[in-house]
Design a protein around this nucleic acid. Structure first.
Lengths: 230, 230
DNA sequence: GCAAAAGTGTTTCAGGTACACCCATGA
DNA sequence: TCATGGGTGTACCTGAAACACTTTTGC
């Protein structure tokens, strides 16, 4: 028999909403879907669901994320809790937002069909239901602050990528253009990339060399107390 | 008759916990209290309480904060949601943490007695119940990142303060010592302080001039797109 | 007159920013 | 051969960090 310590207290539905970001065609994209249930059924929405009793809120977010993407083991962090009384037009729901950075190539497109989900460019984000636009905005803020200091951007790319791609990723995060010489200089100073022999010739005739992120070296540098700023 | 949109979903107790920080005797202090209820009654705890149905989570945090301090209109921001299954030993409770920066002089000490609350130095923080130590740690992280970029530190001081005091505040936040010449130079460059004629002679024979934060000037500079880093 | 804290400048160095041309290749 | 995107180096400037002595005044 479980003791009930806290009596006569109100309880609440708790949801987890996922801001799922990918990088595609040189732009940040966000996964949105047509809402499956009333109210606002059919409206553009983030991927969300209710927290179940036997799971932590982090676990709920991971479960929901997996249901919509088919991806597991992903970079995911909390954005914050959203608790305005009427934020959800259905009932009182407190929502915890999480953002995830995914390599869009691993994304299971069959699930996208099932949930009527699609990737939209961040720059062309439609009006979303409830306070979901605010969640996205808050996420971008976190991303900008965090990407400056930690190499989280690599989560959005595959194992190998070209410098022009990496640069447009950062331009997309900061929403401003960067001088390519300065960008490359800074990266080379950091010494956390490994140049490969192969070239990507898909976007130019000359071709751009592939690089890969050297996590070992990065961890090593961090351990030495070095700081980054990208 | 209210429509119930979401059925068969689990619901949860939701709490708000407040990390209340003040600055006293050249150190950051945190308000902690002896927990009033089981389980862990008598353990050191943050100021917390349950969210009630008719209030948003922000409102709940403000209410709880007011109950314990007697202060209103305070700088307060969310830290995040804590939702491990067994984080609260009593029942499943999801907690939203908020931090508040207060001028310790406005604090109503009679309330402190009522709740068996006291200010403890951050450097000598005791073991707290549940995951409250993690909440504090996360708050310090936020504070360090934020104080570097926004003049939030002034919320911890009265209208007027001396530069040595301001410096120890920042030293306390960053938990490292700062060269006073560099500190002053940077502040003067920013041009957001106003020097007063009066001196504080409480901590030295010579006395230190009082300054006040010039919010108008600060807002003006921000509007011009200037950035700070302290 | 001395102890104790307040106040004050200069030099050095690293990192940020601005900027323009050549290279490799497929069509 | 030309159009397209990839790749490279330098000069300047700002801001961070290191560093030591003088001033005031209560005791």
């Amino acid at each position: 028999m479980t003791a009930t310590f806290y009596q006569n207290k109100d309880s609440f539905l708790v949801a987890a909403d996922c801001i799922i970001m990918g990088f595609h065609e040189n732009e940040l994209n966000i996964l949105v879907s047509r809402r499956q249930i009333e109210p606002l059924k059919g409206g553009w929405s983030l991927m969300g669901g209710f927290v179940n009793a036997p799971e932590s809120i982090d676990e709920a977010a991971e479960r929901i994320f997996g249901e919509f993407t088919g991806i597991k083991d992903i970079f995911m962090e909390q954005v914050g809790a959203y608790g305005e009384i009427n934020r959800d037009l259905g009932e009182r729901v407190i929502s915890i937002a999480y953002y995830a950075l995914v390599n869009i190539d691993e994304f299971d497109t069959s699930l996208a069909e099932k949930y009527d989900a699609r990737w939209v460019r961040l720059t062309q984000l439609p009006e979303l239901v409830f306070d979901h636009n605010k969640m996205v905005k808050d996420t971008i803020g976190i991303l900008q602050r965090k990407a400056a200091v930690k190499p989280i951007g690599f989560n959005l790319l595959g194992d190998q990528f070209t410098l022009p791609t990496l640069q447009s990723l950062y331009e997309s995060i900061y929403q401003e253009s960067i001088d390519k010489r300065n960008f490359r200089k800074k990266l080379m100073t950091m010494d956390i990339l490994e140049k490969l022999d192969e070239k990507d010739k898909s976007s130019s005739k000359k071709g751009a060399f592939y690089y890969k992120f050297n996590k070992e070296k990065y961890d090593q540098l961090i351990q030495q107390g070095l700081h980054f700023s990208l």
